[in-house]
Amino acid sequence: MTEAAGATRRTPGTPCWVSLMVHGLGTTEDFYADLFGWEYAPGPAQLGPYVRALLDGVEVAGIGEMPRDRQLPVAWTTYLATDDADATAEAIRACGGTVAVGPLDAGAAGRVAICSDPAGAIFGIWQAEGHMGTGLAGPAGTPVWNELITQDTTTVGKFYETVFGHDCEAAEEPDFDHLTLHLEGSPVAAVHGVGRALPHERGAHWMTFFAVADPDAAAARVVELGGRVLDAPHDAALGRLALVADPEGAVFTLVRRHPTAS
């Protein structure tokens, strides 16, 4: 993700937005406002109760409230850019994926759909109009990386390569099942095959990484705010990481990236 890309066209296949659907919008707003310093503005009316999270006045994410009669898993959803949501939805179906919702119009925001890949990982596609998605990535409180956690990379790597045109670069380590997805020569996301370590209760899923200045302090704050730490802060190839969940159970990663991390 770029440092500031809110006013530029996103290359199709690039992660362009992250959104969270919850049962209690107000309490979730408070949690992320305290953790990341977010403020909020109303989102598209077509999406029901929905707000755009702002950092220094720039849009960085979205949070919506589920209908009261829907008991769906609470999770962050990664959206991939497309120039034609309808054509991309057809390609997803043709390559073994599923289109669960849409494509549908979201007013000035454009056209969106909720889909899943052949392994069941949910993601969105977004054909943006005037609204171009996440406008800031890099400072603390912004999404800086998206990674698909799945059982193995073989099938899903080919799926994303075919549907979105990603160039897949395999990790050099023979026992590390990991693909970096490139577009126009730049890394935009990754696929990590974890085999039997894939969480049974979650299955394959896209993970959002949010930048923080101090993952250790931020993880402690998550607990103070009613969330949980699922994997304690530790050093990894991308940087210092902590896997956490908010009070409703939405899982995300806190990261202080290495200066050399792509």
Rank of each mutant, 00 (worst) to 15 (best):
G13W: 00
G13N: 04
P15D: 07
P15S: 12
C16A: 14
V18S: 08
S19P: 04
S19H: 10
L20A: 05
L20V: 07
L20N: 04
M21W: 04
V22G: 03
H23A: 15
H23C: 12
L25C: 15
T27W: 10
T27R: 15
T28V: 11
E29K: 15
D30A: 14
D30M: 07
F31P: 01
A33K: 10
A33C: 07
D34I: 10
F36S: 01
F36A: 01
F36I: 01
G37W: 02
W38M: 02
W38V: 06
W38Y: 08
W38S: 05
A41W: 03
P42M: 08
A45Y: 03
A45I: 12
Q46L: 12
L47R: 07
L47K: 02
G48A: 03
Y50S: 08
R52D: 04
A53I: 07
L54S: 06
L55K: 13
G57C: 04
G57E: 02
V58S: 00
V58R: 02
E59D: 15
V60P: 00
V60R: 00
A61M: 11
A61K: 11
I63D: 10
E65G: 10
P67A: 14
R68D: 13
R68W: 12
R68N: 09
D69T: 03
D69V: 00
R70D: 00
L72P: 02
P73W: 01
A75H: 08
A75K: 08
A75C: 13
W76I: 01
T77S: 12
T78A: 12
Y79I: 02
L80Q: 06
L80R: 04
A81V: 01
A81N: 03
D83F: 14
D86H: 12
A87H: 03
E90S: 09
A91F: 01
A91W: 01
A91D: 11
I92M: 03
I92D: 01
R93F: 14
A94M: 06
C95G: 00
